[in-house]
């Protein structure tokens, strides 16, 4: 109960950083930052506020690792219908996890916040510090990439 937000913080960090040790360090660092910044918290919902701190911590860590991701905000528009008939129901957990992990940071973050944390566009915008329109296009692009990824992995079988 007391640590309810801890799971959300850890889940985000784990997806963004890709391993347990870094994720734990980032969450611990974030909770110190959150404490120092507690007096600046004005909203009614602490979760996006906390997750935005976690997100920034993760990005600071990644920055050192030279993983610059090309931004393609205009790419929200969907490509035409995919030719292959997708065997949707047989997607397995492992391939879904791999597909999400293969997404560029911005898109992975959008998927985790929307699908795993079930956050609204407004909350996601707050976490990522971007306009709601950008949330919308990132999410559309992310889902298209995910769909392509999953279709390919399905075909390879």
């Amino acid at each position: 109960m007391v640590l309810r937000n801890l799971d959300a913080a850890y889940n985000l960090a784990r997806w963004l950083l890709g391993n347990d040790a870094d994720a734990q360090d980032a969450v611990q660092e974030s909770s110190i930052r959150a404490y120092e910044a507690l007096h600046t918290f004005r909203g009614s919902d602490p979760k996006p506020w906390l997750l935005s701190i976690v997100r920034n911590q993760c990005r600071n860590r990644l920055r050192g690792q030279a993983r610059l991701i090309p931004l393609d905000e205009g790419a929200g528009e969907a490509p035409g219908p995919s030719p292959q008939d997708m065997a949707i129901r047989s997607w397995e957990g492992e391939s879904v996890r791999d597909a999400i992990e293969s997404l560029p940071l911005e898109y992975r973050e959008a998927i985790v916040l929307r699908e795993l944390e079930d956050m609204s566009y407004k909350q996601i915008a707050e976490v990522a510090g971007i306009p709601i329109g950008t949330v919308m296009s990132r999410l559309a692009r992310a889902r298209n990439l995910l769909r392509e990824c999953l279709s390919v992995s399905e075909e390879a079988k």
Partner: peptide, 18 residues
């Protein structure tokens, strides 16, 4: 397809609890 992708992420992707 969109429903399937979203559903797959929700149901199949691991949620890492602390």
């Amino acid at each position: 397809e969109l429903k399937a992708v979203s559903g797959a992420a929700r149901q199949q992707a691991p949620y890492y609890t602390a």
